[in-house]
Design a protein around this nucleic acid. Structure first.
Lengths: 133, 133
DNA sequence: ATATCTGTTATATAATATATATAACAAGTA
DNA sequence: TACTTGTTATATATATTATATAACAGATAT
């Protein structure tokens, strides 16, 4: 896999892992229906504990990203999770904070939107193969 | 003050407080040079411990938002913190995650940019008074 | 001078979150 | 039978978060 954990980071390992898997799905590095490594395998690859991987997998299952089959392990769901009210509220509040912080520091609306646009474009180009790098 | 703490939240109190102060500065609810309540006063108002407020104030001082005078207390700095490389890297990585999450859930680039634009506009209109609500 | 207000420092305590280690289990597969 | 899944349980260690209490230096107001 493509996982890189920063053991010096303030962010918990299980959360770093969770975010990288979501990024992986968004980029298409992880395709829908694709099998993920077993909790033991991934834990060994990264050099962390099996329970930490298990925690991440279960959170992602709860969020609607993964399906977990007791015998086959975890796979990326065919259908991605919904945009419910809770998600929107969270997104709004998170963006409100990030934008407030950027705004205070003098980042203009245009700069900020450009940054978001670039990130979005980079995702969409990655979809369906490695046409661009 | 305008602080509302959610004691059920997973987010630490000191971090909720930190974000609300940053939002307050961005909105202009807290003006540059303005005095903040003393750590004891604010702690009492919110119903939390003095040290929790103190922690937030010191983080915000470290980040360049506040100046703390031992005798007068904390005030909003006249000059806002810089956009250094560390901040940009953090912002990028944070947005990359948020956008990946939104993208997976089917939020289009246009929807996302519109949301950011609205949040930005709302901030800018709040500046310098209550012209709009 | 005295009382009162700042932030600061120190110490202690409790609860929770994070991460690991080890072992065992049920169920499916080779 | 041996090996693979995730799962469950137990235990332990460490770090984070939050609180409580007390005291201190320095400035300010009465």
């Amino acid at each position: 896999m493509f996982i890189k954990i920063d053991f010096e980071s303030d962010m918990p390992i299980y959360e770093q892992l969770r975010r990288q898997i979501i990024k992986g799905i968004a980029k298409g590095d992880l395709e829908k229906g694709e099998q993920l490594p077993s909790v033991r395998q991934l834990a060994e690859d990264i050099g962390i504990n099996l329970h930490t991987v298990n925690k991440t997998y279960n959170i992602l299952k709860e969020e609607g990203y993964l399906a977990i089959d007791r015998r086959k392990g975890a796979m990326v769901k065919d259908i991605m999770p919904m945009v419910d009210e809770e998600y929107i509220n969270n997104l709004y509040s998170e963006l409100e904070y990030i934008i407030a912080n950027s705004y205070c520091r003098g980042i203009s609306k245009e700069e900020f939107l450009k940054l978001c646009e670039d990130i979005y474009d980079r995702l969409e180009n990655k979809q369906g193969g490695e046409k661009y790098d």
